[in-house]
Amino acid sequence: MELLDKLAECIELGKTDKNFPHPPHLTGKDGARELTNQALEEGVHPGDILKKSLMVGMNRIGEKFAEGKAFIPNLLISAKAMYAAMEYLKPYFDTGEVQHKGKMVIGTVAGDMHDIGKNIVKMVLEGDGWKVIDLGTNVSAEKFLEAVDENKSKVVGLSALLTTTMMNMEAIIKTIKSHDKSVKIFVGGAPLSSEYADKIGSDGYFPDPHGFQKYLNNLTSAA
């Protein structure tokens, strides 16, 4: 198997490094960390490692998750392997040799302290090459606006767990949109629906991170 395919498999199955005992058929073999290092040493362009391995692996596990064939722990273990590989790529992002797909701001809206769902969305997007600015939980409209401005981000993700906290989304969307109409704002979380997302003027609702990621990719490739 080619090096980049092997690396993609490690990301998909969550094999962080040689010592990590999972999955059984890769026991004792190199993991994401070793393979990324090896690829760089062999002169593979870091952008290719990102596109042909990390993104491919994360995409495969995301697809399985969306189909109900994998669960959140699988997604998280893949993300862990992806982060291990990313450590080697970070210097190339810093010099600009590898570029992020874009910057997005994400947070759980004011009144809501739940962040597991939001954190998963963040990890999936980072695995897909986005720079994600995570504002945490209980985030006010002003804080979102400040972060959008500071980072010149054109994409925002809002998360909420209950219908009552979901209602705080509308004011946040209004605040950001009245400042800059071109910022796209997406919403997610258990109580949301497409109808509600339309009603409050958001640019879309996604029940899972993978659908969101695919949509963003189409959006950026069309731009």
Binding site: G14, F20, P21, H22, P23, P24, F71, I72, P73, N74, I77
Partner: peptide, 13 residues
């Protein structure tokens, strides 16, 4: 609760 109802969860979990 994590999704593995009737399924075998990965060994490390």
């Amino acid at each position: 609760a994590m999704g593995y109802a009737g399924l075998d969860a990965p060994g490390y979990i």
